[in-house]
């Protein structure tokens, strides 16, 4: 549990904008490619299912080109320097919840998310925040699952306490 407030070096806005333009162009390409490879059924429709995808792909491509020009003209706003440590903690917490939910149940998985988010905002230690998160999540689970019959995945903890 080391402090890892990795700070992102300030990138030049232009280069990021070129990446955005490239991503937009790729999305446009994927849409066009996927649409072109779509099955040709459903011929009775006057304006087929391919018209809108092609139009949107074309528009995204135009926007990609426009973004390049905007980047060349330094039209992108200055960005604050970012800390990536917190982002990694929170994204990690969400990923952990997603992957563990089915196995450990709502309370434990969501408790981990809670603790990881708190850690992202600089609050620890985890041995304290994880139990707090699990207790809180269990209360939430109990209210919504038992009180309101919502199907939230139950795990060993939920079964243990209600068993």
């Amino acid at each position: 549990m080391t402090e890892n407030n990795t700070s992102g070096t300030k990138r030049r806005p232009d280069r990021a904008a070129f990446v955005i333009a490239a991503v937009l162009a790729i999305i446009a390409g994927v849409i066009a490619w996927n649409t072109a490879n779509m099955g040709g059924a459903g011929s009775y429709s006057r304006l087929g299912p391919t018209a809108f995808p092609y139009a949107i792909a074309a528009a995204l491509f135009v926007l990609a080109v426009w973004t390049v020009f905007a980047a060349l003209r330094h039209d992108f706003p200055e960005r604050e320097p970012q800390q990536f440590g917190p982002v990694i903690w929170i994204v990690g917490g969400l990923a952990a919840q997603m992957l563990l939910l089915k196995f450990v149940g709502f309370s434990i998985a969501t408790g981990l998310l809670f603790a990881a988010t708190a850690r992202g905002f600089g609050r620890g230690p985890l041995w304290m925040t994880i139990p707090i998160g699990i207790v809180l999540s269990f209360v939430v689970w109990f209210i919504f699952s038992k009180g309101l019959q919502l199907s939230l995945p139950a795990g060993p903890l939920e079964r243990f306490i209600l068993g």
């Binding site: 929170i90 939910l101 905002f121 609050r123 998160g133 919504f144 939230l152």
Partner: peptide, 28 residues
């Protein structure tokens, strides 16, 4: 405090999705 506040916000944000459709794909 903000750390608890945002941690709580994420708990409730994912609760909505899990409650509607508890699938790994949806959370992804």
């Amino acid at each position: 405090p903000r750390h608890w506040l945002y941690a709580g916000i994420l708990v409730f944000a994912t609760l909505g999705t899990i409650g509607a459709n508890p699938s790994v794909f949806e959370l992804g």
